[in-house]
Design a protein around this nucleic acid. Structure first.
Lengths: 120, 120
DNA sequence: TGCGAACGTTAGTGCACGCTGACGGAGGAC
DNA sequence: GTCCTCCGTCAGCGTGCACTAACGTTCGCA
């Protein structure tokens, strides 16, 4: 494998794919405010505990979740650093798109002023 | 279906699913700066023109793209408003996660101060 | 040491999705 | 009119993924 290539998905790609699933976003919102055990999280949904456990694994691998063990229980919490990465991506996209829009408005106004100049 | 659940495509959900695909993110980056025709976009990738066309449809339905016709050509451009929606979502998540982290640090410091108090 | 609770893991299934190839339609050049 | 370009759409195929049921593991407790 080439040195530059990621093992199994760039970090941003994994985070995006993880957040594409509505249930995983709901889980993330749940543990954004409070640290909860896997069982408590699973109880909040109408799917099997297994499904929730798999979702938690995906979120953890994507760097969006932190895990802490306490006896037989596993406590989960949202990880701000994981969210920061793709927030930067969106900020870049958003900024460039806005720049483009601003340039358009500017060009349009300039064209209109030239037109008014000719009218005089 | 529970009352709180989305029917089959909240705007944010569609945008997230659209951005989950790496190729679609690349397309979006391509038209973030310049307005390009479907053929020009397709030429930038090593997949069929058909695949790119379907990606463009998905992005357009998600509100992330604007379409403009010019003769037989169809020109595409990134739509800042579509990006704004999910940026707000991430901002909420990010803010609450950071709030949580700040509360944790605060609680930890308070506990440490209490501990030092007992040591005296 | 045995037992139950709390989770993760594995095998299997149904469905959504990205890709391709073939086809259809709209618009310009002659 | 005919031809060509540019592009979307449909049918089909393979893969990935969310889910379930059954099993394995770790920990606390009597």
């Amino acid at each position: 494998m080439p040195p530059g290539a990621a093992a199994a998905g760039e970090p941003l790609d994994e985070a995006m794919r993880a957040l594409a699933e509505p249930r995983r976003r709901a889980i993330l919102r749940l543990v954004a405010h409070d640290e909860l055990a896997a069982g408590e999280i699973a109880a909040a949904f109408e799917v099997t505990r297994t499904a929730v456990s798999q979702h938690l694994t995906v979120l953890k691998n994507a760097g969006l979740l932190s895990e802490r063990r306490e006896g037989t229980r596993r406590l989960y919490r949202a990880r701000p650093e994981g969210l920061a990465e793709l927030r930067d991506f969106l900020d870049d996209m958003w900024a460039s798109a806005l720049d483009d829009a601003r340039r358009l408005v500017e060009a349009d106004r300039a064209a209109r002023e030239r037109s008014e100049e000719e009218d005089r």
